[in-house]
């Protein structure tokens, strides 16, 4: 069992857990994820590690309540425990001094970007971060990102915080102004990552994205997380989760993420509450 030692609500529907998991905290690196299972009947879901404290033996998980499992997860409190937590899984981010690195985080994607940006910064890079959300309420980890970035841009779709617009706008401006960018790391909704890839592709700027497809085991066993990368299928769990954004078949990924939408609804109906079917 893995005890939740701290719970925080970062924005409506977005929660942070600090979880006691000594073996994982000892080994995990930026870019890696865990697979968790809440209870005996639970499904296995992947969550990226948003932070870790090796001395305290804890990892930080940040999640948005979008599916049945994440909603159930949100009802847990400090002192409750997760039944299963496996990891650290996936390949760690390759960290070295590249020069100028732009870290882009959209919505909940800011959480996994944070430890990566911090590691780039510690490796001596100039870190320019761009974080965005639909509105000010949904923006998370501004302070943390500011602390590890040389420059921090904030965008919101409605302009309620930072500038109005999308995360690609400050990025496009940097490119237009002729600023030298050695690497872009983007994590967020698939559509955002695809937009970032489209912006950097014509300029040949190396761009990485971290993918979060549907997974079962997270160890290469099921192939459910397969994504077409440059014409070849790769398993996000063991070959990724980070890939060259210019090679990713984002459309295929979006289709596969919709695989169980109807089943999610079915489960919600059977729970009796919060049914979305008739809305």
């Amino acid at each position: 069992m893995y005890t939740i030692v701290k719970k925080e609500e970062l924005s409506p529907g977005v929660k942070l857990f600090v979880v006691k998991a000594e073996l994982i905290a000892r080994k995990c690196q930026p870019g890696q994820f865990v697979i968790l299972r809440i209870d005996e009947n639970g499904e296995r879901i992947p969550l990226t590690i948003a932070d870790f404290d090796r001395d305290a033996g804890t990892i930080t998980l940040i999640f948005q309540e979008v599916g049945n499992t994440t909603r159930q997860l949100g009802t847990l409190n400090e002192g409750d425990a997760l039944l299963d937590l496996a990891g650290p899984l996936g390949k760690a981010t390759h960290i070295e001094k590249f020069g100028t690195v732009v870290c882009v985080g959209g919505g909940i994607g800011v959480a996994p970007v944070y430890p990566i940006a911090r590691a780039y910064k510690q490796a001596g890079n100039k870190v320019v971060s761009i974080i965005g959300a639909r509105n000010a309420d949904l923006l998370i980890m501004e302070k943390e990102m500011a602390a590890v970035s040389d420059i921090l841009h904030i965008t919101t779709d409605d302009g309620s915080k930072g500038r109005k617009g999308f995360v690609i706008h400050p990025l496009q401006e940097m490119i237009d102004a002729g600023e030298k960018i050695d690497l872009v790391m983007a994590i967020g909704p698939v559509i955002m990552m695809r937009s970032v890839a489209d912006v950097t592709r014509p300029h040949g700027i190396p761009t990485l994205v971290s993918l979060n497809p549907i997974m079962v085991d997270g160890t290469g066993m099921c192939g459910g997380c397969r994504v077409n990368i440059g014409g070849k299928n790769k398993f996000a769990c063991v070959d990724g989760p980070e890939f060259d954004a210019h090679q990713v078949d984002f459309n295929g990924l979006m289709v596969r993420q919709r695989m169980y939408q109807d089943y999610e609804k079915m489960a919600r109906c059977s729970e009796g509450g919060n049914c979305q079917c008739n809305k």
């Binding site: 009947n41 296995r44 079962v216 085991d217 489960a267 059977s270």
Partner: peptide, 18 residues
């Protein structure tokens, strides 16, 4: 098979895995 055997998807939605 993993969804059905290990995760007991044949009992969905009682179990979480579809």
């Amino acid at each position: 098979l993993t969804r059905v055997n290990l995760m007991k998807a044949y009992q969905h939605p009682h179990t979480g895995t579809p």
